Amino acid sequence: MNEPQDSPVRNLDARSLRGLAHPLRMQLLDALRFGGPATASQLAGKLGESSGATSYHLRQLALHGFIEDAPERGKGRERWWKAVHTGLRFDDALLTDARPDVRGAADLYIHEVATTQARDLSTWLGNRPAWPEEWNRAWDMSSATLRLTPELTLELVEKMHALVDTYRDRAADEDDTDTAQVRIHTHAFPLTTEVKGTA
């Protein structure tokens, strides 16, 4: 079942994943989701790519329904684009799909997400001194190592996501000068492949 076009979160299926699973396309979509509408040449400058490459991949994103025209911005000859959804939902079943190309696209997608998250954190660390003292007291980079079952791990992940969701309704006004887009990353994974009770 497909979600409504105006749904804030898009569920990735095999077809849409194959249309998105490309590093530049994922960067372009993130740039539009978090930076607002832009043209191919603006995005090319921001990402250090050619406008020809960004134009091609923007058209592919539009073909798969991730972005659309932003006619309210189009005052000149250049085409403006905007993101259709505010978020994406990845189904782990795509990693074990019967089709090799789907599994490959799923693997590429999750590795690119991990790379992007590491890049986001590295960018913050590099730019941190330029931020006000209040923001330098508010950030976090912590880890915890627990001994859990798969069921407890899933319960913890769901509770973390539920907690984050409670702050969506408390979002500050974009015009408030004290606010910024704050990225929250959550990771939960076992540290070794050794499982008790196996040979």
Rank of each mutant, 00 (worst) to 15 (best):
P100T: 10
R89L: 14
L88C: 06
R89W: 11
D107Y: 14
H57I: 05
K75E: 10
E68R: 05
D107V: 13
T86H: 08
F90Y: 11
V102D: 08
W80M: 03
H57C: 08
P100I: 12
D91C: 02
E68F: 03
I67F: 01
A83C: 01
D97V: 01
I110V: 15
A105F: 06
E72Q: 13
V84A: 06
R79Q: 04
L108W: 05
L95P: 02
S55T: 15
R79C: 00
G74N: 07
D69K: 08
D92R: 14
L95I: 03
E112T: 14
R73Y: 05
V84R: 13
R73E: 04
G104A: 05
P100D: 11
L88I: 11
R77N: 02
G87Y: 12
L95M: 13
R73W: 02
R73P: 01
R77L: 11
H85D: 04
S55L: 13
G104P: 12
E112R: 15
G87N: 01
R99I: 03
H85L: 01
G76F: 00
R77K: 12
W80Y: 12
F90T: 05
G104I: 05
T86G: 14
V84G: 02
L61C: 02
G74P: 00
Y56D: 08
A93F: 09
R79I: 07
H57L: 08
D91G: 04
A62M: 10
A106M: 13
W81V: 00
K75Y: 06
L108G: 10
F90A: 02
T96I: 05
A83S: 14
E72I: 10
R89A: 15
R79F: 00
T96H: 05
D69P: 12
R89C: 13
F66Q: 13
K82V: 05
W80E: 06
L63V: 01
P100V: 11
E68W: 00
L94H: 10
T54S: 11
W80F: 15
D92M: 06
K82Q: 13
R89K: 08
H85V: 00
E72S: 13
G87E: 04
S55Q: 13
L58I: 10
A98N: 07
E112F: 03
D107N: 15
H85K: 01
G74M: 08
H64L: 03
R77F: 04
Y109P: 03
L94T: 09
L61H: 08
D92V: 14
L61M: 09
A106E: 07
A93G: 00
L95K: 09
T86C: 01
P100A: 14
I67Q: 08
D101E: 14
P100Q: 12
Y56S: 12
R73G: 10
V102Y: 03
R77A: 10
P100C: 06
T96M: 02
I110F: 14
H111K: 15
G104T: 05
G104F: 04
Y109H: 14
A105H: 09
W81K: 03
F66T: 11
L63E: 15
G87V: 15
L94S: 08
A98C: 09
L95E: 01
R103L: 08
H57V: 12
R59S: 11
R103T: 09
A98Q: 13
